[in-house]
Every structure is written in C-alpha cells, then in structure tokens.
C-alpha cells in the first residue's frame, strides 16, 4: 500500500564534489517536474536539496543522496535522503537554529531546508554519521479533484 511504485525508481547520486551538488539539483528538479510539482514547489525542493547536499559534502565529508518518488494513493510526493558517515551532529537542537553555523556559512542550511519541505527528519549519532530526510507532496489544486466522485 505504501509507495507501490516508489522504491523501484529511487535514484542514488553520490555527493563528493561541487559538480555532484549540481547533479543532485538536476535530478531533484527532473523528478519533481515529472511528479507534477508546480514551479514554486520545484524551486523550493531543489533549493532544499542544494542546502542539504552541501551539508553532506561540507560537514559530513561526502556521502550520497537518494531521491525517491512517492505515491500514497492520494497524492504524489518526493523523498530526498542525504546520507553521510561523517562526525555526526553533536547538538541537533543547536544545529537546527537559524544562524548557527560550524562551517563558515550563513547557518541556514538545516533550518532553512526544513521550512522548504513538509516533512523533515534528522538521524544522527556522533562519530557514526548523519541522515537527513525531507519529503514534499504535490499540493492538490481544486481543479484536479473534479474527477473524484
């Protein structure tokens, strides 16, 4: 019942360089467009992906991104997971605070990306790595419901 078609078409993209970040952005945009996300939602998703993939690269020492189309029977969505086996996040609450940075950036990566998607979770363990997962669902427009009885 959960995501019957989702798992088969998951795309895994390595995150090890600047060029990989561009590749992650392209993949997320293509996937979001194919799922029917509108332009603003696409832009938010690609931006969130860029922030999170950069975190994987800069703080996690590289890793990979997994992009999975979802279908829960009511709506289509996109799940993006960013996985690294770096040092982990010691104080998650602090890391999620606007303006907090350990990498010389603006400190908007995690907190900003969370605002750009509907579901957001972070699994981290010091010394073992971090996985950040973000999910967004295609916003239903009233017109598209006309087919439902």
């Amino acid at each position: 019942m959960m995501q019957p078609s989702g798992q088969a078409s998951a795309t895994t993209v390595p995150v090890g360089s600047d060029a990989d970040l561009a590749w992650v952005r392209q993949q997320v945009r293509q996937c979001a467009a194919a799922l029917g996300f509108g332009l603003v939602q696409q832009t938010k998703l690609v931006t969130a992906a860029s922030e999170l993939a950069r975190n994987t690269l800069v703080h996690g020492g590289g890793g990979h991104a997994e992009i999975t189309p979802l279908d829960n029977g009511h709506a289509r969505g996109l799940r993006m997971s960013f996985v690294d086996s770096g040092p982990g996040i010691r104080d998650l609450e602090l890391a999620m605070t606007d303006g907090y940075t350990s990498g010389g950036g603006l400190g908007l990566g995690l907190s900003g990306a969370r605002r750009l998607v509907q579901e957001f979770s972070v699994e981290t363990e010091p010394g073992r790595g971090t996985t950040v997962t973000a999910v967004a669902w295609v916003t239903q427009v009233p017109a598209s419901r006309s087919g439902l009885g």
């Binding site: 332009l39 603003v40 696409q42 832009t43 938010k44 931006t47 922030e51 606007d98 603006l106 908007l108 907190s111 900003g112 990306a113 605002r115 750009l116």
Partner: peptide
Amino acid sequence: MRPAVAITLVELGL
C-alpha cells in the same frame, strides 16, 4: 530574480 526564487529565499530566511 524569478518570483519562485524570491519566494524560496524568503522562506529559507535569506
């Protein structure tokens, strides 16, 4: 700047 980019930047906090 594209409107979608402006909307996203505000939400991002930038």
